[in-house]
Design a protein around this nucleic acid. Structure first.
Ligand SMILES: Nc1ncnc2c1ncn2[C@@H]1O[C@H](COP(=O)(O)O)[C@@H](O)[C@H]1O
Length: 170
DNA sequence: GTTCTAGAAC
DNA sequence: GTTCTAGAAC
């Protein structure tokens, strides 16, 4: 199995991963991201095999159901964001449901941080318009400056940014 | 996506 | 000398 297909196993056999799968029904699965990029980080997926590039108008209700399962995982008073990476690495369609802190040991690279804090992160409401994705344009966003999403301060290295995030979200 | 690690940057 | 980033992985 290619590493790009690793998320599919949770959709095909959710009962085989009781410590990773947090919720599932006939059509959708929610898991704990195995390399969380915040204190809380879930992925919600449809159980049918489908990728971001396959989405059509007919899939809009499915996207909204994914959002619904995402909402069911979080409390009203918690600060989360929900969206898709414009250019995902993993093939199976997955909605990121992630707390806004970005405090996590798995957050290591500049592109990790920028993939959640720039337009590379496409919210559900934008995705249901089925935007055409210019891959080069979106990948360029991952090479931008490191700016704290909370207070707009710029940092020269990831360790400095991470230290800052730990302070504001402690 | 991650791991590993060479060599750039400090 | 240590910290940090970035490119290969068959
Ligand atoms: N084996 C895995 N099991 C669960 N989640 C994973 C696995 N490998 C990668 N991930 C997560 O899957 C997400 C894929 O991100 P992306 O394709 O950029 O939207 C990332 O948040 C990874 O941390």
């Amino acid at each position: 199995m290619s590493w790009r297909d690793q998320l599919w196993q949770y959709c095909a056999n959710p009962e085989n991963f009781p410590t990773i799968v947090v919720k599932y029904d006939n059509d959708y699965v929610a898991i704990n991201d195995q390399y969380p990029k915040s204190k809380k980080h879930f992925l919600v997926m449809p159980r049918k095999r489908i990728g971001l590039k396959d989405l059509t108008k007919q899939d809009i209700p499915m996207i909204l159901e994914m959002e619904k399962m995402g909402s069911s995982l979080i409390q009203d008073n918690q600060e989360f964001k929900m969206g898709f990476h414009a250019v995902p690495s993993m093939n199976q369609l997955h909605l990121h449901v992630i707390s806004v802190d970005h405090v996590s040991t798995c957050l290591k690279l500049k592109k990790h941080y920028l993939s959640f804090t720039t337009d590379f992160f496409v919210p559900v409401d934008t995705m249901i318009d089925l935007p055409s994705i210019d891959i080069e344009k979106y990948e360029a966003l991952l090479k931008g400056k490191l700016v704290c999403h909370h207070c707009k301060q710029e940092f020269k290295t990831m360790p400095k940014l991470k230290q800052h995030l730990e302070e504001i979200y402690k």
